[in-house]
Design a protein around this nucleic acid. Structure first.
Length: 113
DNA sequence: CACATGACGAGGG
DNA sequence: ACCCTCGCCATGT
């Protein structure tokens, strides 16, 4: 697993319940600003290896874009108190924003399935 | 090595 | 708000 993937997973598991982050935000913090697409890719391919809140990651417009399982994502978000209109979420209300992330504060071992 | 594939993002119409 | 085009980039074939 490369550095980017490792960093991204650490960030994703740190998104608090009731909040969301965008693919682009995660990519930037993980050290590869233009690798937003990879975040989506790793969420799909790695969520079996690591327990992470995949449903809290949405696109920059605040829209749910999962290819399949969009209903499940909506249900999970609503169960955390997030209001979802159709597939849209208010980033103004729920976006989790941080300008620095300390990767040493997370041990991936704690999140293995 | 060449080409196809996305849970993307920014910008325009 | 909706639709399209491009640029991106790790993987997969």
């Amino acid at each position: 697993m490369n550095q980017f993937t490792e960093n991204a997973i650490k960030i994703i598991v740190s998104v608090p319940k009731g909040h969301v982050m965008t693919y682009g935000q995660v990519a930037r913090l993980a050290g590869s600003p233009r690798a937003a697409r990879q975040v989506g890719w790793l969420l799909r391919s790695m969520s079996n290896k690591y327990k992470m809140p995949w449903h809290r990651i949405i696109n920059s417009k605040g829209i749910i874009t999962v290819s399949d399982g969009a209903d499940m994502q909506k249900i999970l978000l609503e169960s955390e108190g997030i209001v979802v209109l159709g597939k849209s979420i208010s980033l103004k209300t729920y976006l989790w924003s941080i300008d620095h992330f300390d990767f040493n504060q997370v041990n991936l071992k704690d999140y293995e399935s």
